[in-house]
């Protein structure tokens, strides 16, 4: 596999406070990887260093272009967190996507016919073609995510970088977004994203990078989503369960939460789920899944 991104010994400090320490990372062409970690772990900072939006205190980020490619360097596209977008800005879906097209310093202020066609094709691909002339404020959360994904795709990137693309939307929309990314990855797109949704990452994303200022572990979900690694990453008491072929991660609830705070229907549901009638497998790190009394 051809490498597309090499991160060597990368560190970032903000006013003497370490944000990232000695990060070494390698992505190959066609890979789909997710960075997971708690808030403040440095996930967005790492993405920004890779994108060239932040300057590292030490180390380097190297983007490597395939020798057969026509471009001199890989082209990156970035989908930011939707909560940093000014949704009242007076632009339509079409204009936002058009912004993603590479451009010379000076150009006509309107899209060419070829650009219009390319924008419309990407919108159709993401099933939001009918929203082209809508103001961005009038879209649902899932549609908003797709608009910014469309802007990223219209640039025809070699590496697609997304910051929490499944946050702030309902479970079904998040699932749809992830399927969309998996389809793109199947078509050969290299993808690097951050997420807080460990269960979705475990179910769908082939390569996981656990980060908490430094890389704790990386690998396939089964290898990485173990209690010792997750405990170290999240500095908490994490639980890994295997159920119906799915790997499920959850923070272990406090005793008083389960006994006193959870309403009966939830407690009952959890009780069904964790009772011996639903067999629990041992976590892959060899640790027995702790018995949970409810």
């Amino acid at each position: 596999m051809d490498p597309i991104l090499e991160v060597h010994n990368l560190s970032l400090q903000y006013r003497h406070t370490p944000v990232l320490q000695e990060i070494n990372l390698h992505l190959h062409s066609g890979q789909f990887a997710a960075i997971v970690g708690p808030s403040g772990a440095g996930k967005t900072s790492l993405l920004k260093l890779i994108l060239g939006l932040l300057r590292a205190t030490q180390g380097q980020v190297q983007l490597i272009q395939d020798s057969n490619a026509s471009r001199s360097a890989p082209r990156l596209s970035y989908v930011p967190q939707v909560d940093v977008v000014d949704w009242n800005f007076p632009v339509t879906v079409q204009q936002v996507v058009w912004m993603g097209r590479p451009r010379p310093k000076f150009s006509w202020p309107w899209p060419t016919d070829a650009e219009k066609q390319r924008v419309q094709n990407v919108l159709e691909q993401l099933e939001i073609g009918h929203l082209a002339n809508q103001h961005i404020r009038n879209l649902s959360g899932g549609q908003q995510q797709r608009v910014f994904l469309a802007r990223a795709l219209v640039a025809e990137p070699d590496l697609l970088v997304l910051d929490e693309p499944t946050s702030g939307v309902d479970m079904r929309t998040a699932e749809n977004m992830l399927h969309l990314l998996l389809d793109l990855n199947q078509q050969g797109m290299t993808i690097l994203m951050t997420t807080h949704d460990l269960n979705m990452a475990a179910a769908h994303i082939p390569w996981i990078i656990c980060l908490n200022k430094r890389i704790i572990a990386e690998g396939e979900p089964e290898a990485v989503f173990t209690e010792p690694i997750l405990n170290e990453t999240y500095q908490g008491d994490m639980m890994v369960l295997h159920h119906d072929g799915l790997l499920l991660v959850q923070q272990r609830p406090h005793e008083h939460t389960r006994d006193d705070v959870l309403p009966n229907p939830i407690l009952g549901h959890e009780a069904d789920f964790l009772t011996p009638t639903t067999p629990l497998e041992e976590s892959p790190n060899g640790c027995a899944t702790p018995a949970v009394s409810v």
Binding site: L53, S77, P80, A155
Partner: peptide, 8 residues
């Protein structure tokens, strides 16, 4: 979006 514009 000044930050993201740089990436593009």
């Amino acid at each position: 979006d000044s930050d993201v514009a740089q990436v593009y």
